[in-house]
Amino acid sequence: MSEYHLPPYARTMGMEIDHVEDGAPVIAMDYAERVQGRPGFLHGGAIGGLLEMAAHAALRAELQRQGSDSRIKPVNISIEYLRGGVQERTFARGEVIRAGRRVANVRVEAWQGDRTKLVASSWMNFLLAPPKD
């Protein structure tokens, strides 16, 4: 997974690969003013962006294991916000539920200090397309 590069948006937001867990990267994002929503709390959109990066990274890792270099296009995402994100480092990890020929379904969770207290939970669907020449 060391060759996986986060896109410009993720780097701008201060996201990085913290470690790899059971084949899926855990993406981390430090608290800073750039991720703040209402004073003292993470912005829902910043959490959403982190969830998407973790889903994307988990799917890319799974496709690599399958020997596929398909292109990945996000189709939709549904996010449940479970508790306010506080001024701490936030983590997210995706779990590929199914990666078929045309569609992949990924579950993603975000948490802070306590892994059992989720900040957000979501599912995301992707369209898989053959690589362009």
Binding site: G48, G49, E52
Partner: peptide, 10 residues
């Protein structure tokens, strides 16, 4: 990226 679009819609 879709992240900024989530933020904008939120």
């Amino acid at each position: 990226a879709s992240g900024p679009i989530i933020s904008l819609l939120d």
